[in-house]
């Protein structure tokens, strides 16, 4: 098989890795490599500088506290599935199980899935709903010119720039994700193929008690740059009693177009509308097995 020229560095600790990354910010960070090997590293005649991450054990740790669970960016998807009891999210579990065949999930990693250029795949919207925070690390020279490692936690929302691309400064990388526990009792997850390997997905987390919606988080994504989480519509739904009356239902459906601008692709607009309707129906009659699983 043809292979383009590579230069590979395998730093043995995070400090070395970040120092190298700072020196050469054009380098590619490789964890599982499932996306890189298929889509990025096949342009002939280009020279790639690669920084390997898989040997760094600190990036493969999973831990938990009372309020959240943390996963290193190199934790594989299958390991996340196996340790589902730590993350305590049926929605996350569902999403992870749908991410490709078993052997691919053994290579693909959390960080890799979040950082695919130009595409926000399955994991991003779910982590967004769970109010995940992301640890960014980088190194900075001190006065004595030695490097020191810095870290900051940002909300996953702030990971993206306005044009939907990953918004990290040169030399910065994601090292951990912190996923708070969500005590809701309702989840909704639908993924519909739009074209080729693009899907529109709707994810929702909610708390509904005696028919009254006390909390809701709702997100639509099309795996490209379309990510819609609209607080207005969430606010509009909050406090409502389900099942909705016809008037309320029609009003909510009518309002949808104010909150979500119609997409270029009419099929996407159609899906958003209908999946939203399905969500309302599901809230009115939540499936039993989704309530209080964790």
């Amino acid at each position: 098989m043809k292979q383009p020229p590579y230069h590979i560095s395998i730093p043995q600790n995070l400090m070395d890795l970040l120092s190298l990354y700072r020196k050469n910010p054009a380098s590619l960070l490789m964890a599982g490599g499932t996306h890189l090997l298929n889509h990025t590293l096949n342009r002939e005649g280009e020279h790639y500088s690669i920084l390997s991450l898989t040997q760094l054990e600190e990036l493969q740790k999973i831990s938990r506290t009372d309020r959240y669970a943390e996963a290193g960016c190199c934790v594989t998807i299958n390991r996340m599935i196996e340790t589902a009891y730590i993350f305590r999210s049926p929605l996350l579990q569902d999403t992870l199980c749908q991410m490709g065949p078993y052997p691919i999930r053994n290579s693909a990693t959390v960080g890799g899935n979040l950082c695919i250029p130009g595409r926000r795949k399955d994991l991003f919207p779910v982590l967004q709903l769970l109010d995940t925070r992301v640890e960014i690390r980088y190194v900075k020279p001190k006065r004595n010119k030695r490097m020191s490692m810095k870290s900051r936690w940002i909300h996953i929302n702030n990971l993206l720039s306005h044009d939907g691309e990953i918004n990290l400064a040169e030399g910065e990388m994601i090292t951990r994700v912190r996923i708070p526990y969500y005590d809701g009792n309702f989840t909704f997850h639908r993924k519909v193929n739009i074209k080729d390997d693009f899907y529109l997905s709707v994810n929702c987390l909610a708390t509904i008690e005696k028919g009254v919606l006390s909390d809701i988080r709702l997100i639509f994504t099309n795996e490209e740059k379309l990510i819609i989480r609209n607080r207005d519509i969430e606010a509009n739904l909050l406090g409502r009693r389900f099942p909705l009356g016809k008037k309320d239902h029609d009003q909510l459906m009518g309002n949808l177009s104010h909150f979500y601008m119609p997409n270029e692709n009419p099929y996407e607009t159609y899906l958003i509308r209908n999946l939203f309707r399905q969500l309302l129906e599901s809230l009115a009659d939540p499936p039993e097995n989704l309530q209080g699983t964790w």
Partner: peptide
Amino acid sequence: ELVYSCMIPVFQ
């Protein structure tokens, strides 16, 4: 763990 070996660079 099962992996697709065409997706694994040998240094890993």
